[in-house]
């Protein structure tokens, strides 16, 4: 085992009956990395995290978290990790302070550190003047930061976040990612799942998981160049009608509305752009502009997932 890796997983598999939730997953996460684990709902993200946290026993394969075996040392793993899920698992009927004290006790935060850690959580979550407020009455962003604070009171070297930003407004999401970045700078490894593709940009490294299998891996930049196709941005009048015609034309692999423009996936921009322009003009559309654009992560993931579906059509019907 490489001592630099916080998480190391080899052929990790989990089945529920005949359903394979996670299929022979292999990956490593280096210390101090923000590792983004992406994929659509039901892809196996949460199942993977739950196996790594010792909540779920793998069916087969190996896994090490902080150098400890997920099969046999899950109790020891629990002392070295923090975990927060999309449910922000706080007690609604306890006050902010009572929640902090409760988790401090469960995590056995040393008594002489408690005041300091509590002050840090309150500060970080922006709840210093709300310590006696019932958690129920807090807005989503505050709850989310409080849940994070509670989960890291014991200063774990590894932090698992399962869709930590779902249901939170964009500003709070930005603030949350700033906190994650701060923790990573201090050496915490952060393993985070999300289905917000724009959030993938905050990660040092990404893995895309789909139907239990990892289908892409790398830094955000590396992942973007994985896309074999080019993307054309087309500005045209009556974009809805143009979209329908293009879909029916067979000239594009994929076309979608992006703001007021269309994004079309073509094999190659050099030949694709003139062909599309000619087709649209023949159909009576006025094409204002047509030009290649760099793919967003979302484009890449959508294309990769479709590629996977074409390769393995049986699974797509599920």
């Amino acid at each position: 085992m490489n001592r630099e890796n916080a998480v190391e997983v080899k052929d990790l598999t989990r089945t529920f009956g005949s359903f394979v939730a996670v299929d022979r997953l292999t990956l490593e996460v280096g210390r101090g990395t923000v590792f983004g684990f992406l994929g659509p709902n039901g892809a196996g993200k949460s199942t993977t995290i739950r196996m790594l946290c010792g909540l779920l026993l793998p069916t087969s394969g190996e896994g090490r978290v902080a150098g400890l075996d997920v099969m046999t040392e899950s109790e020891a793993i629990k002392r070295s990790i923090g975990y927060m899920s999309q449910k922000f698992s706080l007690y609604d009927d306890l006050t902010v302070e009572e929640n902090i004290d409760f988790y401090a006790g469960l995590y056995s935060v040393p008594k002489d550190r408690r005041q300091e850690r509590k002050a840090w959580v309150l500060e970080m979550a922006g709840l210093a003047d709300k310590r006696r407020t019932l958690t129920r009455t807090l807005a989503g962003g505050w709850k989310q930061r409080l849940a994070l604070g509670c989960a890291v009171q014991h200063e774990p070297p590894i932090l698992f976040l399962d869709e930590p930003t779902s249901g939170v407004d964009p500003l709070s999401r930005r603030r949350f990612w700033d906190l994650i970045a701060q923790m990573a700078r201090r050496g915490t490894t952060v393993f985070v799942t999300t289905h917000y593709m724009e959030e993938a940009e905050y990660c040092d490294e990404l893995a895309l998981i789909y139907r239990g299998k990892m289908i892409a891996r790398g830094t955000p930049h590396e992942v973007k160049v994985l896309l074999p196709d080019d993307i054309l941005e087309i500005r045209v009048e009556r974009p809805f009608e143009a979209l329908e015609r293009l879909e029916a034309s067979g000239l594009v692999r994929e076309v979608a509305l992006f703001g007021g423009a269309l994004h079309a996936v073509v094999g190659e921009a050099g030949t694709g752009a003139p062909a599309l322009a000619r087709f649209l003009e023949e159909q009576g559309f006025v094409v204002e502009a047509i030009q290649p654009v760099p793919p967003s992560l979302e484009d890449v993931f959508v294309s990769l997932i479709e590629l996977e579906d074409r390769r393995n059509p049986a699974g797509a019907e599920e």
Binding site: C53, L55, Y83, S85, K87, F88, Y91, D92
Partner: peptide
Amino acid sequence: EIGTMEQLMVTPIL
């Protein structure tokens, strides 16, 4: 139901 059981189970509680 509220998910705190899962949270409890990732703490070192026996």
